[in-house]
Design a protein around this nucleic acid. Sequence first.
DNA 1: CAGGTAAGTTCCTTTTTCAGACTTACGACG
DNA 2: CGTCGTAAGTCTGAAAAAGGAACTTACCTG
Lengths: 154, 154
Amino acid sequence: MKWDTLDEEPCSLSRTVAVVGDRWTLLILRECFLRVRRFEAFQSSLQITRHLLSERLKKLVRFGILRRVPYSEAPKRYEYILTQKGLDLYPIIMAMVHWGDTHMGDERGRPLLHEHKTCGKLFDPVMVCSECGEALNAKQVHVHAGPGRKEAVG
Amino acid sequence: MKWDTLDEEPCSLSRTVAVVGDRWTLLILRECFLRVRRFEAFQSSLQITRHLLSERLKKLVRFGILRRVPYSEAPKRYEYILTQKGLDLYPIIMAMVHWGDTHMGDERGRPLLHEHKTCGKLFDPVMVCSECGEALNAKQVHVHAGPGRKEAVG
DNA sequence: CAGGTAAGTTCCTTTTTCAGACTTACGACG
DNA sequence: CGTCGTAAGTCTGAAAAAGGAACTTACCTG
């Protein structure tokens, strides 16, 4: 597998995996959604080596998931802020949190609770069909090759 | 970071990342949802080294995501089948596919289309609030420490 | 001018991953 | 009977990635 061109495969999962498919990137994104923005803050909360953090942040900026925004001119200091493309990763993160809550919990209970400001309640994320609104499950879905696959396969 | 105990962190995202947080595991799971079940089939469709495939499958079995089921007694042959815990990863995979469709597409169009057998239509997965049914977005969610976090932090 | 802070970079060691050959156990072919 | 083919792995040496810790730059504070 050539990881450097994974984002051009005719498969949307591969393309997503190319961007967020490693441990550190996912943990960095968790911090982003918890409003962490600065290099030192990421480093101290994750205990990631500065080298890797620097590299991963660059990659996320390169893919348009974070923006590097100056917050001080002298000395030059930057913070990393989620773009819309980055904010759109929220369902992935929430799906992972929900799976962890459901299947990897221990006797201590959930680490975090999520409140939906709009309705005021504690909630779980549920994935539904855009057409009929019903909850989705793997066995009710049939997959067809789309135009992007047919062209790639020939 | 000690990756070997990541699944015990007081964070559901970390625990999920401990299980599915690497490139190969996610691609293997994609194949599982496309009904691939056998060692040789995974190997030839992914071009993963046999060594890594063997290791990743063992790990998925160990975490209860796949079951190793014999399909031939002599010679002994096995296939790998998603458990319910594994099937429950579907929202994560679909969320990743959807993000890839939305943000990593090219002029060729979508690689795959998904049909909801229940309603018969092509759909996108949408993540909604379990309480009010509204589509979720990061800015409308407030996070509270839950019991599992409070106990861990002290 | 010594000490502190933020955001990196550099260097060296350890761990993972990769590519490909080897193994085991069977069935079919000639 | 010996050889080929297949499925599901294991083993090995080389290459790539990750880890740990010190170093750098540019400013600010007492």
